[in-house]
């Protein structure tokens, strides 16, 4: 068990190191930082002095180590485009992204599980087949197109909901600006959250449906029915409870995808989050922001995967046996 955990942690650290190397090399290849810092009239001696003072003459590995040291402390330098510390920029926009991801995760989970249960229990109903067909279209539609279509229907034609921005935001604590406490903020989050959660919702729905159908065939469900339990107790107390373990794992793994697809959703709805910041920085080749975002996303993914791997190990005893056997 300990060996497995250590191996996974070393692996994750390696991944982070590779991502850090890519981020670091971005800095080194995109122009000479000295020429963007000093004026035209600086002499060669001045430049050399500044180069020495900034440690740019140090060996590659020393500079790389310094970069990692700074990155661990959250120091990624100053954005070329906005002239602000990168970490400040990202932290100020992170709440918007996290709120969006949270709300769409909840929508995906609640709707996905309830629709999945419904379609599993009413397999032959016309509503179930309707839901399944719609979900197939939902999977094949690209995220950005779903967003655009929702804007068209609900913001342009019906004018029910706002099509861009976060609405009114209020401070919650020192650095968390939330839109969930105001009326306009809650209205603004509906369309982006649905756009972002739709794919995950269809995924969860299909998973729950498949698992439910599987479980409903088992003997203990038949026995529960034979004991005269109500449909409700059988379906929710016995069947659903046993389908939820894989569903929760998949939902956890999907958290990373939600953050990734937030880039697209944020751009469509002009949501002031980290993803929109990243797209801007790619367009303007704003290296410090790109490097910081690269490492942030890698960190989130590595942590999620690590937790899920460890959870698998804890939850499923068969994995432990397989690994023990494989080593012999």
């Amino acid at each position: 068990m300990l060996a497995f955990i250590i191996r996974r942690i070393v692996q994750s650290a390696l991944v982070m190191l590779v991502v850090a190397a890519v981020s670091f090399s971005l800095f080194r290849f995109v122009g000479d930082p000295i020429s963007s810092m000093v004026g035209q009239e600086a002499t060669m001696a001045d430049r050399a002095a500044l180069r020495e003072a900034l440690g740019l003459n140090d060996p590659f590995l020393v500079q790389f180590a310094r970069f990692i040291g700074n990155a661990v402390q959250g120091d990624f330098g100053i954005s070329y485009r906005l002239q602000q510390p990168v970490m400040e920029l990202i932290l100020s926009r992170l709440p918007a992204t996290l709120e969006l991801a949270l709300i769409s995760g909840i929508i995906a989970f609640v709707l996905g599980v309830s629709l999945g249960v419904y379609t599993a229990l009413n397999r032959r109903g016309w509503l179930s087949s309707g839901i399944m067909t719609v979900s197939l279209i939902g999977v094949s539609l690209p995220t950005f197109l779903i967003g655009v279509l929702l804007i068209w229907v609900f913001a342009v034609e019906l004018q029910w909901l706002p099509s861009f921005g976060r609405g009114e935001v209020v401070w919650l604590g020192d650095w968390w600006r939330t839109g969930l406490l105001t009326e306009s903020g809650r209205r603004s989050i509906i369309l982006p959250a649905i756009t972002l959660g739709l794919y995950q919702m269809t995924l969860i729905m299909r998973l729950v449906r498949a698992e439910m159908l599987e479980v409903l065939r088992t003997d203990y469900i038949k026995f529960a029915r034979a004991r005269g339990l109500s449909n409700r107790a059988v379906h929710f107390g016995h069947a659903l409870k046993n389908t939820l373990v894989p569903v929760i794992t998949i939902t956890g793994l999907q958290l990373g995808s939600i953050i990734a697809f937030a880039i697209i959703t944020e751009t469509v709805f002009q949501w002031p989050g980290v993803g929109a910041l990243f797209i801007r920085s790619v367009q303007f080749v704003d290296v410090p922001v790109m490097a910081a975002y690269l490492m942030l996303i890698a960190l989130i993914f590595v942590i999620i995967n690590l937790i899920v791997d460890l959870l698998y190990y804890v939850v499923d005893p068969r994995l432990r046996v397989d690994r023990a056997n494989a080593r012999h």
Binding site: L26, V285, L294
Partner: peptide
């Protein structure tokens, strides 16, 4: 296969976007 495993744990659209961004930098 290690590289493949790591890459599979990220959504491919994110990988494409990151590679595109990094390449533009170079």
């Amino acid at each position: 296969m290690r590289i493949a495993d790591v890459q599979l744990s990220f959504p491919s659209i994110l990988i494409a976007l990151l590679i595109f961004g990094v390449a533009r930098g170079f």
